[in-house]
């Protein structure tokens, strides 16, 4: 479904500040794969996500979705295949527009936008039904400006917006990191439900080790721009956090250092 071949990315190449963000990364996701990604600060996790979504262009290497090479497509063109939720709850929604209007824009993900009426009655009915699935009462506030919602509510809405049109790839970059534990738990639960229900091919960066093990069917570890370990379902099932950290140290030769780390 998603295939990265020999992808590399340098920042500030040829200067004293040169930074290897991604080095010769190879990754292949099968349809329906739900892969969690862990790694130290600066390991290149966000860079990986940004290269897939088109925010960054790889210096070398290819990105393919369903066989089609997409690494030359601009960010907005890739939205046809890719849904995203950002770490910052403010980033995924338009605050001065209503819930309904935000959902309308998400509904048209990757399609041509023309002079057709936005929030039609038919679409609104779909939105209401979808909002009910979140179970946090947003279906009764469809005319509210999104800026009035709490961080958790906004993130739940972002999650819905990026998934309900069934993208071929879903990218989640620490999308619960900015929330308090209770809200983070809610978003994690919703993510798990939605991804499994819709069988979305998903790449999820997390700093919560317990979550990385519990969720999904695969776990990859990154360090210094490389993918250093890829743990399949069978091995992941009875992995403990201690084992996971031990494994990281064994391969990388240093401790996993993540300023937002949560062991679970």
């Amino acid at each position: 479904m998603l295939e990265l071949t020999k992808v590399s990315k340098l920042f500030n190449p040829g200067t004293p500040n040169e930074k290897i963000a991604l080095m010769d990364a190879n990754l292949k996701l099968n349809p329906g794969d739900f892969v969690t990604v862990i790694g130290s600060n600066g390991a290149g996790k966000s860079t990986l996500m940004n290269i897939i979504s088109g925010v960054l262009k790889p210096d070398v290497g290819e990105v393919r979705i369903a066989g089609e090479a997409i690494h030359h497509h601009p960010e907005h063109a890739r939205s046809r295949w890719i849904g995203r939720v950002f770490q910052d709850p403010m980033a995924g929604t338009a605050p001065r527009m209503t819930i309904e209007e935000n959902l309308t824009m998400a509904y048209k993900r990757g399609q041509r936008r023309g002079f057709g009426w936005g929030a039609t009655a038919k679409r609104r009915a779909i939105f209401r039904e979808q909002l009910q699935r979140l179970g946090i009462g947003l279906e009764n506030r469809m005319h509210a400006k999104v800026g009035l919602l709490s961080g958790g509510e906004r993130q739940a809405l972002s999650l819905l917006m990026s998934t309900f049109t069934k993208p071929q790839i879903l990218l989640l970059d620490e999308h619960t990191a900015a929330l308090d534990p209770a809200r983070a738990e809610l978003i994690t639960r919703l993510t798990d439900e939605i991804v499994r229900d819709m069988k979305l091919t998903t790449l999820m960066v997390t700093h919560n080790m317990e979550q990385a093990i519990r969720l999904g069917n695969r776990l990859i570890m990154m360090d210094k721009g490389r993918i250093i370990l890829d743990i399949p379902q069978e091995k992941k099932a009875d992995l403990t956090v201690a084992q996971l950290l031990g494994e990281f140290e064994r391969i990388s030769g240093h401790q996993l250092s993540d300023d937002r780390i949560v062991l679970g």
């Binding site: 063109a77 338009a94 998400a106």
Partner: peptide, 10 residues
């Protein structure tokens, strides 16, 4: 309002 968001929706 949020250019990054609407770009991510195409």
């Amino acid at each position: 309002d949020n250019a990054r968001m609407i770009r991510s929706f195409g």
